[in-house]
Design a protein around this nucleic acid. Structure first.
Lengths: 225, 225
DNA sequence: ACAAAAGTGTTATAAGTACACCCATGG
DNA sequence: CCATGGGTGTACTTATAACACTTTTGT
């Protein structure tokens, strides 16, 4: 990537993907360990790479995410474009950042020799980050919080069937605040966001929860909180 | 622009600016007449141009807007990045689109020999548009409508002092719907969005309106409608 | 005196928030 | 029978929506 920028002395375009999931009651971000100087010493970065001339920027984001981490079939949307001059020490790279979500039960990671390894990090325990990726992740996190409140994208963080309490927990983890159980259920049900399946959760020492599924797994704007 | 893209056969980055104002009770967009094939015959485009290696993408947007139209000191924010492969017939150009607002009393246009002329168009009467600029303008218009409802950016469309009815008219024109005068005033005043000056409007054959000014001319998120 | 826009409150409806107990299961 | 999370309704408060007349000026 840097070589290209230096060689032509023109800005080139990369895509970077901030992918979130919920694991162990924490919001997690997927990062790749850097191998190159000056970032070789324990710096990490979001998956990404140069945009090729024969692919759209969106396609580039999907391809880079898959090639570098093995993750596919995710909710993906453009986040913001980071275009400050000094953001990449190797050359003039403008990055179109994307924001992605995946259910935790769906993840299969990959390790490439180019990047060393790939790992989930809790949003509250991020390692040292290369480039301006700290800022990119912060922007993505803000977007996630806002978007949970005014859209149905939570569908892309949960498994196919889930108890309502798990949906509520997802909201609470991401928004970092407690929600009232009755009001939450009332709202979710009145919006017809989910519908009951006839399955229930079992094997735990309490009343079994009814399992729900999302009524519509396409992104929609709606006021949830 | 196209020459560069062809020469290196790599994606290059441009910025495009969709600038809005209100003129004659209509929402207007500033466009520049195209001179090059295949767009020479009455196609228009938003102001923009290549991002230089020594400027950030934001700076590029401001510079291009000023150089091509003479417009400066505007509200400017990043809108969306358009990265489809075929969007520019000359080569692989990814465009970072910006969204700008200016009060109509503030506009001074410029004509350059490169672009021929520069002109305001009513949003409902746009000419043929080059590249994917029709889509870019549509995206900007959606952003403007939403942002009027949840932020104070209207401050950048109005002159320093204005009657409340003009603020209301601005909302009505952009949102394409009538608002209730009493409810609108109540809301605006209760938010302390504006404060009364001791000036009044005169010279018209009706009761003179009190003139208001915005309490805070920095962008802020607040629920207005 | 008339035309034209400014200015001003009240009521009804809807949405949001706060809050506590019983239920079904596993161990 | 106890611990655990599941499941349910009502009262209060706040925000939104609907609606009509009087005031001030210029001509």
């Amino acid at each position: 990537m840097p070589k290209v920028a230096k060689k032509y002395d023109f800005a080139v375009i990369a895509s970077d993907i901030v992918i979130f999931t919920i694991r162990k009651n924490k919001l997690n971000v997927l990062l790749i360990k850097m191998q190159k100087e000056p970032y070789r010493h324990n710096y990490w970065a979001t998956p990404g790479g140069l945009v090729r001339p024969d692919e759209s920027v969106d396609e580039s984001a999907r391809r880079n995410l898959f090639e570098k981490t093995g993750v596919k079939n995710v909710y993906l949307e453009q986040l913001y474009t980071f275009g400050e001059i000094g953001r990449d020490p190797f050359g003039r790279v403008v990055s179109v950042a994307y924001f992605a979500l995946i259910p935790s039960d769906n993840v299969r990671l990959k390790t490439t020799k180019e990047y060393g390894n790939v790992q989930w990090f809790g949003i509250a325990n991020l390692p040292k980050l290369a480039y301006d990726h700290k800022e990119i992740i912060a922007t993505a996190y803000e977007r996630l919080q806002k978007k949970l409140e005014y859209s149905n994208i939570a569908y892309s963080l949960l498994p196919k069937k889930f108890p309502l309490s798990e949906l509520q927990k997802t909201y609470e983890i991401i928004l970092k605040r407690k929600l009232d159980k009755r009001n939450f259920r009332k709202k979710i049900l009145s919006l017809d966001l989910v519908k009951k399946t006839n399955a229930t959760e079992s094997g735990r020492s309490n009343r079994p929860a009814a399992l729900y599924e999302f009524a519509n797994k396409t992104a929609q704007i709606m006021s949830i909180l």
